[in-house]
Amino acid sequence: MGSRTVLITGASRGIGKTLAEHFLAKGDIVIGVSRTETSLADENYHHFLADVASEADAKRIFTAIKKQFTSLDILINNAGIARMNAFALTPIQNAQDIMATNFMGTFIFCQKALNLLRKSPCARIINLSTVAVPLNLAGEAAYAASKSAVETLTRIVAKEMGGFGITCNAIGPSPIHTQLISGVGDDKIDKLLQQQAIKKMAVVEDVINIVDFYVQPQSSMVTGQILYLGGIS
């Protein structure tokens, strides 16, 4: 399999960067979006600096993509931010920033990508959620709420776009050693792991495994699903 066109937000580090490398290794064309420069260097890799929460940035990116590509096969909305804080002490601006990047970023990129996705015979949208949603994790009110919104968006986009042959699913990773959770204490992570059926840290490859499942042509009947790692439901 190869030569698919894949757009990944938050592609400069963590899960997004590993996913970009994964698709490049398969011979796909990857369009990465992030607020920072990339260290990825590949003839099939195209990088755009952007804030995913900015509609103007998204328009600029999709205008450029349309000039170069006739369709988009896979959109992975991976860009996300998290700030742990007690609900009572969470600065309102933090909550707004988290909603903007995590929810509005996903909303905007889903919407702007639709016309290119419609032209793919096997179009896929994959959104990133978190186990913080089903676990209702204390200290993650804004983050979990933003991802809860992403999950609802995923289900509704799946319904509205099913007729166009576009599937839309989400992945809820359990804790993985990435920068996103670098500020979370070991005791908190341990407590979280104890709530899982499989009480260990996940690795990025676990996410890649689900992504590969969602994008394979045989998964055309799989849509509107949220798949959590670690045995959370």
Binding site: L114, N115, R118, E160, G163, F164
Partner: peptide, 8 residues
């Protein structure tokens, strides 16, 4: 749905 596609 067809209208949405047309408008797009």
């Amino acid at each position: 749905m067809a209208l949405v596609a047309l408008l797009m």
